[in-house]
Design a protein around this nucleic acid. Structure first.
Length: 110
DNA sequence: TTAGTGACAGGCA
DNA sequence: CTGCCTGCCACTA
């Protein structure tokens, strides 16, 4: 039980992302029950990734680009996505039309 | 308690 | 296409 319920829903949503697919921050926030909580998703990832074994690399911004701040983070993320079959352009951009994870329903939060 | 911050999103020039 | 601004929410000092 990390912190607030929002944070737990965010973690749960990220764990639900299947291999070979990517998801945006806004979509994660929506799945967590907070359509406006995209920034919270970023904070959660940055803070909890190391402790909770999350597929952080499957999360990109709305433009489809890698938003990692760490200098070599993008290269690392690109490598991890490539292992799952997700092609990342040399400009660290993912084709959302093909790789975006689409859910049947907008909400499944408790 | 208030102010500052962040791996964002969306709208607009 | 790029860049700037605003709204958002939870966390930290």
């Amino acid at each position: 039980m990390p912190h607030s319920e929002f944070t737990e829903n965010i973690l749960n949503a990220i764990r639900s992302i299947p291999e070979g697919k990517v998801c945006t921050y806004g979509l994660i926030a929506r799945l967590a029950g907070n359509p406006r909580g995209a920034r919270q998703v970023s904070w959660t990832l940055h803070s909890m990734t190391m402790k909770y074994d999350l597929p952080w690399y499957r999360v990109v911004n709305s433009k489809g680009t890698l938003s990692v701040t760490e200098p070599d983070g993008k290269e690392y993320q690109k490598h991890l996505l490539g292992q799952e079959g997700v092609e990342v352009s040399d400009n660290y951009e993912v084709d959302l039309d093909n790789y975006l994870w689409k859910t049947n329903n907008n909400n499944y939060h408790l």
